[in-house]
Design a protein around this nucleic acid. Structure first.
Lengths: 190, 190, 190, 190
DNA sequence: GATGAATGAGCGTTCATTCAT
DNA sequence: GATGAATGAACGCTCATTCAT
């Protein structure tokens, strides 16, 4: 593990524990086991770590999606995506908050689209296949739909896990309502 | 205008210019035209301003929704909501970013649900009326649907205005796709 | 004694002991008995102290000249000036070095002329009186002569006390030669 | 060009641009195109460069004097010396300031006398020849007079070019007054 | 001799916080 | 309640110095 990666993973670890604002570069280098000055050989500031961390988070999300979505059928695929993203959000609460915090605090907001691109493209791909086999209406514009779906599922997951501490029963109902809604929107049989 | 409100509006102004992290209490009191110590008579810290600012933001959003949604028809109402939220996001980019930043940096994340509640309830109300007149399917669970709708519209707007600088034509297409999707999801005629 | 003056006199004291470069602002505030942050309420940096210190040094030089030059006769006055400046340089070696160091390290070099002005004017005044009583040639341009005299006497003193550690006998000879030269230059009887 | 000379000339270049204090060894080695550690093979510190730089400066001054002083006559020689030193100061402002700064910041002040020695001796030689041919009074002590002359001419030049930005007409008058004064002091016909 | 990544002590500077007025 | 000069802990950051290659 090279110094740069040491810094990034140390930073993630400390940010999770103390929050971004209260984390000092001192904390990061201590956790990473390197010297103070070494940090600055790789990153000009604490906030410059954010895109690197965001990439790791989205990479993990991508992995999670790819691991959990096996079916051939678009309806089942969507269900698996919803479940995967809900689970991922639940498990990575602090990292997710970290990202919002980190990216909004810097000028790196625009990097977000780029970092998310692989996820969007992966969904676009699934939708294209579904559309080619007439599983979903031909009128749907894949590019936008992929973004809408990811956006709405994440928003729902965040409402349930981040901004609120719902009880599991309510979360289940929420997720089912979300799923039904998406199915209707894509003219899939419930 | 009393000192407390002076502080809040000064803070919003300075946060927009310099970002939260780089804003000092010194900056805020200077902008507010009050003495250094006076700040502490009203707020214990910079971050304690966040819920107050969030309320103002969501209040403005509510105003905007109420001003722009006039129709009786749920389909038209939804169109108006989409347009209003897109416009609101475009016009309040920096304040929106500010909120994400501010709330995620503190332990005030849970306040978010509470602050948003009036907006959710207002949408729930519209949906209830529509459901009662059979304009939308009776199976829909209003409470969740309101949250899903607000979440997905905001997510879409943010993808277009915050995380990306789309050209207007693409934004228009995105919004139309979003609208069609919502209509299908609620079994409304396109 | 107000904080600003405390800082200046503390700075002079520490600079003399440790030299400018090795003096930290920490040293200065410790010597001044004030808090770290207080320094920055009065000076933006260590070097910004220099003009203030230079004024004090030149002020002391002026005092010394005025205290030591009593005679009515220009020849005697010049002798007294030479003696006063030699003595002053010997006694204020470190402060003098400090000034060269401080002013050359910053953009304050041009301040020097202004700070020295009172000394030049005081000499100009003596020369004018001497010229009016025909003690020195009428062709001499007082303004330049004052500067030449101060410059050459200081240069001589510095050669003897700063850049070199002459033995007293040689310094005495040097000073006598200097005096004779100035007398010849002003057509004064030896 | 060997590494040592590379370092010296790089240092001069960077010092002129940034000033001594703000120049780092990193800057110097970058300019010199050598590795960080290599610097320490030749100099123990930044300030240890100063005598080497001073020698170069005084060497240039010597060259300039020898190039510009051709006449046999002491009166003309002195005029040429004055002109040469004024010109040299005007052209080497920043290097001269550098020297004052550098030498005063360190314990190398005493080196100055040694470095200047060749210049003094060269002037002593001219004066000795002049005295032997009775061009200047026999009472003058050559050793001191050489130092007085160099000191006063430099002081005058520095007053005009370093500490002040005189207009050229005034500088000319200053220089003429200086010349006349020196001529009178050495009993030379104007 | 030459390199340059890594070091870490120590500096300047900030700024939240206090409290006598 | 309001003030704002003063505080001093604590942070970012620099940069001279080292040493394995």
């Amino acid at each position: 593990m090279n110094k740069k990666d040491k810094i990034i993973s140390a930073a993630i670890s400390v940010f999770r524990q103390k929050g971004i604002e209260k984390t000092t570069i001192s904390d990061i280098v201590k956790e990473a086991g390197i010297a103070q000055g070494t940090f600055y050989l790789y990153f000009p500031s604490k906030m410059a770590l954010m895109p690197a961390i965001a990439e790791i988070l989205v990479g993990k999300m991508e992995d999670s999606l790819k691991r959990n979505v096996h079916s051939k059928d678009i309806a089942q695929q969507l269900t698996e995506i919803i479940n995967a993203l809900f689970e991922f959000t639940a498990e990575n609460k602090d990292l997710t908050i970290l990202m919002y915090s980190g990216l909004t605090q810097t000028s790196h907001l625009k990097d977000w689209e780029l970092i998310y691109l692989p996820v969007y493209q992966w969904v676009e791909n699934l939708l294209t296949i579904a559309q080619e086999s007439n599983a979903i209406p031909s009128g749907i514009k894949i590019e936008y739909m992929a973004r809408i779906l990811i956006g709405m599922i994440e928003a729902a997951a965040e409402q349930n896990y981040l901004f609120n501490e719902q009880d599991p029963a309510k979360i289940k109902e929420f997720r089912e309502e979300l799923q039904k809604m998406i199915f209707r929107a894509l003219s899939l049989p419930l």
